[in-house]
Computed example of a mutant assay.
Amino acid sequence: MVQFSRICFRKYANFVDNLRLYVHGGSGGMGLPRLGGKGGDGGDVWVVASKSMTLRRIKDKYPQKRFVGGSGANSSIRALKGEKGKDKEVCAPVGITVTTDDGRILGELNAEGDRLKVAKGGHGGSFYSAFEPSKGAAKHIRLDLKLIADLGLVGFPNAGKSSLLTAMSNATPQIANYAFTTLKPEIGKLMYKDYMQISVADLPGLIEGAHINKGMGHKFLKHVERTKQLLFVVDVSGFQLASKTPFRSAFEAVQLLTKELELYKEELVSKPALLVVNKMDLPDAEEKLSELKEQLQNPDDFSDLLPADMKPKNYLSFRHVLPVSALTGFGIDHLKSCIRESIDEDAATETKAIHQERLQALRHHSH
């Protein structure tokens, strides 16, 4: 069994995952009509990915949230071709999607050093423009961060996701016996004895209707997009969000979570998934667990338990169904080793695929 030592936990106080900026390319320089000189083009504005940057830091460092490229130099007798204005770079965290105000995607920055031009500088004045320069492009853009983690915890409020993280570690997320205690994403790192690290994103609890942006809605679901695998967490006894909402069994909770992910973005449910059945210290837990396992093996036989609008198109098949008690620590070690096994399995498959691609490319070149 894989030895697991501890979890390092980073809490995101005042977490910012969306920022609106004003960007403006620099103006071009004047041309010189007498000698047919061309003014320098204005500087462009770029967003550049940097692992050390956060949106909170941009917000604090540039309260005006305004980024303008340098102006191009005028053409002169000494320099008929004016120098280009200085480009302006906005350092942003890795995992950013850049969109316009109306939601059009301009590009994504997924790796350190990725660059995206967001505002072009104006042209310098020349013979073709009667030596008049043009202004740079100006617009508002949004930087939208999606957390990148190996594992995303998915569960309704009160499923015990935060308690689970605490049980796996000496971390102290805010835990209370009411819904919506996790309102900001948090990332924990599982540290293994061989120095392997697995990052876990604990995300705000979903509620029914999240896909249409109820509750934390899209704010939560967009972070799930960037995780490699999903860790569903359900309460073995089921749950009831509020006195006016219906009680849901553990089986219904699994299908509801699947449905919410599916409605938001169908490809989310093709990610590898593990299911943690929490609160095994409760009375009748064993009985309820065996009932849940049977239902998950033959979901179609039990689909009449679900209202039509709660039925997912495809039932998820979990790599592991893991009973645990975050309260007593039961099953926690086994869960950790299964997480490791699942992540390792995917990494091996990925490496194999890359290796095969390279072999095919080599064969293709040799022919």
Rank of each mutant, 00 (worst) to 15 (best):
K222V: 11
V269D: 02
K146Y: 14
I332E: 03
A111E: 15
F131T: 11
L268Y: 02
G39M: 01
K293M: 09
K61F: 09
V48H: 04
C91A: 15
P185L: 02
F330T: 12
S163R: 12
E294A: 13
S163D: 10
P204R: 04
Q64C: 01
G125C: 08
K265T: 01
E287K: 15
A130S: 15
A149Y: 00
A149P: 01
I354G: 05
A201W: 00
E112D: 09
K38C: 13
K222S: 05
G95T: 05
M53N: 07
K65F: 06
D300E: 15
P173F: 06
V321W: 13
Q360T: 14
K88L: 07
G82P: 12
D102F: 04
V68H: 04
D60L: 14
T99R: 07
Q360M: 14
A73K: 13
S27E: 15
S71L: 11
L165K: 00
S249C: 10
M216K: 12
E357Q: 15
D281C: 12
S325L: 11
A353V: 12
S76F: 02
K265M: 06
V48K: 13
E262H: 04
E83G: 07
N18T: 04
T100G: 09
A130E: 13
L35N: 08
M310P: 11
H140A: 14
G155M: 10
M53F: 06
I207T: 03
V321G: 02
V98R: 09
S76T: 06
H334K: 08
H334W: 05
F127H: 15
F247C: 11
K279P: 05
G31C: 09
S129M: 12
D284H: 02
F239T: 15
N298A: 02
S134K: 07
I207P: 06
G188W: 00
K279R: 05
L32A: 05
V321M: 02
K139H: 09
E266S: 08
E252S: 11
Y264C: 06
Y192M: 08
D60E: 13
L359E: 09
I7R: 06
G238L: 00
S270L: 12
D150Q: 05
D346I: 06
